[in-house]
């Protein structure tokens, strides 16, 4: 357990250090971008102005001093000003993170439910199981953004009431909260669908393997011998005993899900972290990239750490039972 904690802290420190140094070595200069229209380089900016701006953003100091300064201000909750958006990074991320979470959480929760139900269906009907297994194998290898593009053109471009992009209809005032939520739902529908299509197989495989494992246990045989109904065995024995690997998988999938979401957001122009990450790279907005990368890494690391904790706890309780 101590090892896991050390790994968690070290990984975060490596990411943090990497995160600090790499944007500073990137080619290009954000100032020649900010002072121009629509991202085109201009050379109208004078040396003196450049120096003033660099001094203002603290980019003229030695790298070590910048690093220490960054750590102390980060600890105070200050992640700097976004060069492109001209707002504080925390503010920009605060606006966008909820939308990424909308996609990620709905994807993970619906994939988990769907995957577990498919595994349960497969337990009862062997033929169905073969079919689901093959389909899941094929789908699990396809990246989500390809399915997203297909949905975009085959569904969104053809069906009137499904929007092509964005998170809510712009400039529209909503009569009531339900109307607003419906608008949000219909905008997120296709991105989430694309993500669910490729995430469900992961949960299906985990659940299926775990359930088949439980089925082999003698206590299930005993339950059958006692004359419990199929239904009781399925829910009280198989699901309850076999669900933990699925829950661990839920937290382990956060990383893959985040990667998928970043791409999907760019397919549907959904204004989440993925979109600003791409924009940050395009406009060489160091500070914003740092913030987004840090937040997303922290999210993924914490999720895997929770998965480790669950596994560890499980091992302990099983040890006591034996």
């Amino acid at each position: 357990m101590l090892k896991k904690i050390i790994l968690f802290i070290c990984t975060f420190m490596v990411i943090y250090t990497f995160n600090f140094f790499i944007p500073r070595l990137m080619p290009g200069d954000p100032f020649s971008y900010t002072s121009s229209v629509s991202g085109e380089d201009i050379d109208g900016i004078s040396e003196a102005d450049l120096e003033t701006m660099k001094a203002y953003y603290g980019l003229d100091r030695p790298i070590g001093a910048q690093f220490i300064n960054t750590i102390s201000s980060n600890l105070n909750g200050d992640f700097g000003q976004s060069i492109h958006y001209k707002k504080s990074v925390i503010e920009v991320i605060g606006e966008r993170l909820p939308w990424t979470l909308v996609i990620m959480i709905s994807t993970l929760v619906s994939s988990l439910l769907l995957g577990v139900s498919l595994a349960l269906v497969g337990l009862r009907r062997k033929k169905m199981d073969g079919l689901i297994y093959t389909t899941a194998t094929l789908l699990s290898e396809i990246p989500a953004f390809l399915i997203g593009i297909l949905l975009l053109f085959l569904v969104a471009a053809q069906v009137k009431f499904i929007p092509l992009s964005g998170n809510v209809t712009p400039f529209k005032s909503f009569a009531s909260w339900p109307a607003y939520w419906f608008d949000v739902f219909i905008h997120a529908l296709l991105p989430i669908t694309a993500m669910v299509i490729i995430t469900t197989p992961i949960f299906y495989f985990t659940a299926r393997g775990s359930f088949l494992n439980v089925l082999k246990k003698t206590y299930v045989l005993n339950a059958k011998g006692k004359g419990l109904s199929e239904k009781q065995i399925r829910y009280k024995y198989i699901v309850l005993n076999g669900i933990f690997p699925v829950i661990t998988r839920f937290f382990l999938s956060v990383g893959a899900c985040l990667g998928g979401t970043i791409l999907i957001e760019n397919v549907f122009a959904y204004p989440g972290l993925g979109k600003i990450l791409q924009e940050g790279v395009m406009y060489r907005d160091y500070v914003l990239i740092q913030g987004v990368f840090l937040i997303s890494s922290l999210m993924v690391l914490t999720a895997s750490f929770i998965a480790d904790l669950i596994n560890e706890g499980l091992k302990k309780t099983r040890g006591i039972n034996q």
């Binding site: 968690f8 990984t11 990411i15 990667g259 791409q278 790279v281 987004v292 990368f293």
Partner: peptide
């Protein structure tokens, strides 16, 4: 442990 796509983008 490092999330792949974000770091690859960076």
């Amino acid at each position: 442990a490092i999330p792949q796509l974000p770091i690859m983008i960076v």
